[in-house]
Amino acid sequence: MGTANNRKSIFITGAASGMGRESARLFRQKGWFVGAYDVNAEGLRALEAELGADNCVVRRLDVTDKADYERAIAEFGACTGGKMDILYNNAGIGVGGYFDELPFEDILRVVGVNFIGVLNGIHSAIGLLKATPGSLCFTTSSSSATYGMPGIAVYSATKHAVKGLTEALSIEFRRYGVRAADVLPGLIDTAILPPGTAERAPKEGMFRLIPPIEVAKVVWEAYHSDKLHWYVPSEIAELDKAAGNTPELVREQISSTMTFADEVASEKK
């Protein structure tokens, strides 16, 4: 376990793979001290070896366990002198299928990781963020937070909740000098995608396949900006605008693509 030694620091959940792992790599390259957390202990060990033990602290963490989250935050603070420049709430899971056909325990599991886990993280870390000038509370939302998506309704609902929470906290936390922002990624090439999705993804347009490093770059940019919502790719912003202005039209457009949604739902069962 390393110590920050006056370096800036970032606390990343879901760090063992995908967007979290790429963010850990990027911030290490930028000279930051990295806290990497995930339920995937093997992935964390590999990441620690890559980053160097003096440059990071890695720890298994189930974000739904508030008490353990608080312990992880305390341990991180002990390594950073009680500071945290970025809290990156990135951990998330997806369970596809039609809402009425899903086991209710699967629904609650998605809510637990994707939203309760974010609440646990922010509530546990706010003390360190308040103690750090210019700090940022950053969270992974989703393009599915622009309009409720069939086949992943609960996932989509949790990401809407994350987006709304971010907007509210971006105002509330101003009294501490803490910023809040989120990223709304489209189709990112990570393990959360069901088998075959990458091969069927369009080659262009807002739902083309995007490498996870592009999200990591956005986390870096967000730290140096006061922008609230970040879209990857940027065209997702147009869907967000359309969903707000003409939700009925977007509903019909999405309904016309239900064949793809049916395929995703059946593969995720």
Rank of each mutant, 00 (worst) to 15 (best):
G2E: 10
N6Q: 13
K8V: 07
S9E: 06
F11W: 14
A16L: 02
M19N: 02
R21S: 03
E22S: 10
L26N: 04
F27H: 00
R28C: 14
R28N: 15
V34C: 12
Y37F: 15
A41N: 03
E50D: 12
G52K: 02
G52Q: 06
G52V: 04
D54P: 02
N55T: 06
C56R: 01
D62A: 00
D62M: 00
V63K: 00
K66Q: 00
A67Q: 13
Y69P: 00
G77I: 03
A78I: 04
T80V: 08
G82K: 05
L87H: 11
N90M: 07
I93Y: 02
G94R: 02
F99E: 01
E101N: 14
P103G: 09
L108G: 02
L108K: 10
R109C: 01
V110L: 06
V111C: 06
L119H: 02
L119C: 08
G121M: 05
I122V: 14
A125Q: 01
I126V: 10
L128V: 05
K130H: 09
A131C: 03
L136T: 05
C137E: 11
C137K: 01
C137A: 15
S144R: 00
M149Y: 12
A153I: 06
V154D: 04
V154L: 07
H160K: 04
A161G: 13
V162P: 09
K163V: 08
L169S: 05
S170R: 15
I171D: 13
R175A: 11
G177L: 06
V178I: 12
R179I: 08
R179C: 04
A180L: 05
L184A: 10
A191E: 14
L193D: 04
P194L: 03
P194Q: 12
G196T: 03
A198T: 10
E199D: 14
E199H: 01
I210M: 15
P211I: 06
I213Y: 10
A222Y: 04
Y223H: 15
Y223P: 02
L228Q: 10
H229Q: 10
D240S: 12
D240H: 14
K241Q: 11
K241V: 14
K241Y: 13
K241G: 01
K241N: 08
L249P: 00
V250K: 03
E252M: 13
T259F: 13
E263T: 14
V264G: 05
